[in-house]
Simulated scan of single mutants.
Amino acid sequence: MRQPDIEIYLREEHLDALTEWLNSQIGPLQLKPWNELTRRGALTLDGQTIPLMIVRKAAGKWASVWFDSDNTPWETDRDCARAINAGLGQEVRCSVGGWSEEQSDDDPDRWLKVTSEGESEFIWAMKP
């Protein structure tokens, strides 16, 4: 089932490579300058605008990359993580499943790690 938005986590040192990859592989990318730890922008894919927000230090050295649209090329966070890992060759993290306010997940710290060696679930105790 297609998620209403997509969020993945990537190490901060790979953000420039990510934005270059998105621009060349997905569609034109327009980014505003950094506003402290946040950078907003939009991708254009098949005439659709996909709002994008990058938040540095969202989880230690990991940045949150949020595509605020259901018109992304990926149906799920996992699909996006796989594509970015394949494109950049870097570890990408995402939630194991989607998230909704109605969801009552007993273990909200379960995450998926996508690397060139494969995929594995782990417990990520994120600290603010």
Results as ranks from 00 to 15, higher is better:
residue 120 S to I: 01
residue 10 L to M: 11
residue 28 P to F: 04
residue 85 N to D: 07
residue 75 E to M: 08
residue 83 A to R: 06
residue 76 T to I: 05
residue 18 L to R: 07
residue 71 N to E: 12
residue 3 Q to E: 15
residue 4 P to N: 15
residue 74 W to F: 09
residue 65 V to P: 04
residue 49 T to N: 05
residue 27 G to M: 05
residue 15 L to Y: 06
residue 61 K to C: 04
residue 82 R to I: 15
residue 26 I to G: 00
residue 40 R to A: 05
residue 93 R to D: 03
residue 122 F to K: 06
residue 55 V to H: 08
residue 32 K to W: 05
residue 120 S to D: 04
residue 4 P to T: 15
residue 65 V to D: 02
residue 60 G to N: 12
residue 80 C to W: 01
residue 10 L to C: 09
residue 51 P to A: 07
residue 31 L to V: 04
residue 82 R to Q: 13
residue 38 T to S: 05
residue 99 W to G: 02
residue 117 E to G: 06
residue 116 S to K: 14
residue 23 N to E: 10
residue 28 P to I: 06
residue 78 R to L: 14
residue 97 G to D: 12
residue 98 G to I: 03
residue 108 P to D: 08
residue 52 L to C: 03
residue 10 L to E: 04
residue 124 W to Y: 11
residue 85 N to A: 02
residue 102 E to Y: 11
residue 90 Q to P: 00
residue 82 R to D: 06
residue 14 H to R: 11
residue 14 H to Y: 15
residue 86 A to P: 01
residue 57 K to S: 08
residue 82 R to V: 14
residue 68 D to E: 13
residue 44 T to D: 10
residue 6 I to E: 02
residue 49 T to R: 02
residue 92 V to E: 03
residue 94 C to L: 09
residue 52 L to F: 06
residue 71 N to A: 11
residue 128 P to C: 03
residue 55 V to P: 00
residue 84 I to T: 05
residue 16 D to S: 11
residue 38 T to N: 09
residue 44 T to A: 07
residue 14 H to C: 04
residue 128 P to N: 11
residue 102 E to L: 10
residue 84 I to C: 02
residue 76 T to Y: 01
residue 39 R to D: 01
residue 40 R to H: 08
residue 66 W to E: 05
residue 112 L to K: 04
residue 108 P to G: 09
residue 120 S to T: 14
residue 109 D to K: 15
residue 29 L to A: 00
residue 106 D to C: 05
residue 21 W to M: 04
residue 110 R to Y: 05
residue 25 Q to V: 01
residue 117 E to N: 08
residue 123 I to Y: 10
residue 80 C to M: 11
residue 121 E to D: 07
residue 77 D to N: 15
residue 56 R to D: 02
residue 128 P to H: 12
residue 125 A to S: 08
residue 96 V to G: 01
residue 77 D to S: 12
residue 80 C to D: 02
residue 52 L to A: 03
residue 61 K to H: 10
residue 72 T to V: 11
residue 106 D to Q: 12
residue 124 W to C: 03
residue 84 I to E: 02
residue 121 E to Y: 09
residue 112 L to R: 11
residue 78 R to M: 10
residue 23 N to M: 00
residue 42 A to Q: 15
residue 26 I to M: 02
residue 71 N to V: 00
residue 67 F to G: 02
residue 124 W to I: 01
residue 41 G to H: 08
